[in-house]
Amino acid sequence: MNGPLSVATIIAALVLAAWYLLRSALNRAPSRFDLLAAVVLSALVAVLVVVAVVGLFDGSRPSDTATFAGYLITTIAFTPVAAYLARLEPTRWGSLILGIACLVIPVLVLRLQQIASVTGA
């Protein structure tokens, strides 16, 4: 959970967040590229979640497995939901939705790391 993949996800999300917030500030609706970037980020997050799930089956489990699983489900579902809402909103607010989503992703990843680091061995 602490590998380079998490770091890459967090950095990608933050860079995209800055981009989307800028787009929103400039009164731009999400473009095709913006939505595509959100899909790519979703894929990156999905890979991260799959790696974490595989990790559950070999070796140390977090002591709070239920919470961990809840966060994993939330994390994998979150970006697609935000991208869907943003697609419904072809205004600057659509860009703001994507920007907020990209700010929440690092929080979710950090929480996952936090929960994963407490193992009940």
Binding site: V81, A82, T91, W93, L96, I97, A101
Partner: peptide, 17 residues
């Protein structure tokens, strides 16, 4: 629930969850 309302929808949804 459109425009800024949709942004609020997302943020309230996050907090509800």
């Amino acid at each position: 629930g459109t425009g800024l309302g949709r942004v609020l929808l997302l943020v309230y949804g996050i907090f509800a969850l």
